[in-house]
Amino acid sequence: MTPRAGELDPVIHAQARLRVVSTLASLSAGDQIAFTRLQKLLDMTPGNLITHLRKLETSEYITSVKRGSATYLTLTTRGRSAFEEYVSTLRSLLEPAVGPEDASDPEGTRP
């Protein structure tokens, strides 16, 4: 499901999936994380995490590979692009309330 311009991607917007995608996006492109490691990082039950991973995999935002007894997850190029678009859309929606991002003060420390 591709969101219309100016709309947040409903696949990513669910809180648990946003946490999953943002965690995977923090890895370098092509890097993988073990299911158990992701589960611990996000403090999610296996069943809950699996449910959200299935939705992300169906949308082709992630891939999973089983090696031995471990499953490894990777954010796809499509998933990374969708996340970047999500962040961009969210920023544009929030800008009227918080003002434009000040590139000279990225931490927002100046009054």
Rank of each mutant, 00 (worst) to 15 (best):
M44K: 11
K66G: 05
L94C: 12
D31M: 03
T63I: 04
D102H: 13
I33W: 11
S64A: 09
S59N: 01
T51A: 11
S88H: 12
Q39E: 14
R37V: 15
L93D: 07
Y86E: 02
G6R: 08
R4S: 08
T71Q: 04
L75C: 02
E95V: 14
A25S: 13
A70N: 08
I62F: 00
F83Y: 15
M44E: 13
S104Q: 11
R17D: 10
D9F: 04
Y72P: 05
R54A: 04
L90G: 07
S92M: 10
M1D: 07
A82Q: 03
M44V: 07
S104G: 04
V20I: 15
G47S: 14
S92E: 13
T76C: 03
S81M: 03
G47H: 12
L75H: 01
D105A: 12
G6M: 09
P96C: 14
H52G: 07
D43R: 15
S69K: 06
L94H: 06
S92R: 13
P100F: 09
A16V: 15
P111K: 12
R78N: 03
V98Q: 11
Y61I: 00
T89P: 08
L42D: 08
L73P: 00
L49P: 09
M1E: 09
A14V: 13
V87D: 07
A16H: 11
R91P: 04
T74A: 12
T2L: 05
A14P: 02
P96R: 13
V21M: 14
G99L: 13
V21P: 05
T23L: 06
D9V: 04
L42H: 10
L41F: 07
V20A: 02
